[in-house]
Design a protein around this nucleic acid. Sequence first.
DNA 1: ATTTTCAAT
Length: 194
Amino acid sequence: MEAGTAPRSRCLLDENTFTENFKNQINTRKTYLCYEVEIVDGDARVPLDEIKGFVHNKGANQPGEPCHAELYFLDRIHSWTLDRRLHYRLTCFISWTPCHTCAQELATFLGENSHVSLHIFASRMYRRFDYEAGLRRLQAAGAQIAIMTSKEFEHCWETFVDHQGRPFQPWDGLEVESQHLCKKLQEILQTQQN
DNA sequence: ATTTTCAAT
């Protein structure tokens, strides 16, 4: 029954939720991950609008086992049962770069699914434990990792936020912070492994 | 030059 199609608002983020979680100068204890999927056909890319959306982590302060956003994302990907004969480009916009463990999980997934390529844009850099090695491993597995700039924030606002027609309002210092993080990420990703 | 952050390294 086509009549049961979910309303568009179900996969849109509240304005404040977006800003509170993606603002790149403040730290949060939550992680949001917005994703888009395209089929790649030669030079052309066809968006699969029906499966775009977002997930967020489950914190240690909530009932049940904690779970990072990336693992929910991987669950979603598996639920789509993507056709191995096609090529898909997944883009995700995540409020923190993946931790070491999640980076490894994503790298493993990419290793097993050559029909999928992954582009990650992050608003902030998660810098705990072995995060640098995790990011390098993820890059080595073929993922493109970058820091969100105003272009990506605006794209997310337009695509994933219930903005009621209001334009994206960049916060003070957005660019400066983004550029700083870009530089840090480049340093990490350019460092030789071993 | 900038860290405490998907809580508890």
